[in-house]
Design a protein around this nucleic acid. Sequence first.
DNA 1: AGCGGAACCTGTCGGC
DNA 2: TGCCGACAGGTTCCGC
Length: 281
Amino acid sequence: MPELPEVQTIVNDLSGTVVGKRIESVQVFRDAIVQLDPERFVNRLTDTVIRAVYRRGKYIVFELSGPLWMVVHLRMTGKFSVQPSPAPVHIHNRVIFQLGDRQDMIFNDLRCFGTIDLTEQIDKYPALNQLGLDPWDHRLTAPGLYKVLQHRTANIKSLLLNQTIIAGLGNIYVSEILFDACIHPDTKGYQLSKKQVTQLLRSTRTILSDALTFNGTSISDYRRVDDKQGTFQNFLKVYGKAGSPCHRCASTIQKIKQNQRSTFYCSQCQQKKRSFKRLPA
DNA sequence: AGCGGAACCTGTCGGC
DNA sequence: TGCCGACAGGTTCCGC
């Protein structure tokens, strides 16, 4: 569900509603979500104050007094909402944080893929340290990305989904980015030219910025903290558009499976370039 | 090392 | 109507 623009929107919403609040009590309804003993989880969180909320890749990090950090991943269907306490009962509510001002911060997750963990050393948290650069990080450059992709034999679609290369992209935006950059999703990493990689990075930043401006893409599950929808779904050019005419050339948008996941693209605009490049050593 | 496939869990939708 | 398979925005683990 949530990719970088959705996670950033949620972080922005939470920053405006829960920062400065004290966690008075915590209820865990589904133990598997919490990555440590639930009783210990509750004890360590109780009476901490939320100092800040920020994003790294698709992870949400709550900086708490202690100091302590709560690291959350929404996976496919995780959501946060903030409601007056006591919040109405909902079968998919997995963890409820009761805040000091009679507000509840609720973690709701239909599929239970989401995770919530605690750490006292955020700098040494493995999942975050394994992430690649964020798309807007100035250290992420076209020559640098080209160099990485040159040694890769996988298709560019799955390489863009790989969070250790660039952090934050998911299935919707990768299709949109490759369409914007006119790159065929089955192009192998090493087959991309410098020019294509430059365009790829430019498209990545443009698409994500636009999606963030519209508070993300609400197709089925994703909702903001106040339950409002994002609106970028109104601007998608290829994702979920199989059979529709291409915005650029009017030929039919195709749907294929790559590594068990759907990819949407225009076979006219995104042609595989004939390449004589050798396989990487 | 890096790749592709299966698995994790729950719900919805379309076809027969 | 009912059943069954396919599919869903993500990640991790496993075998090759």
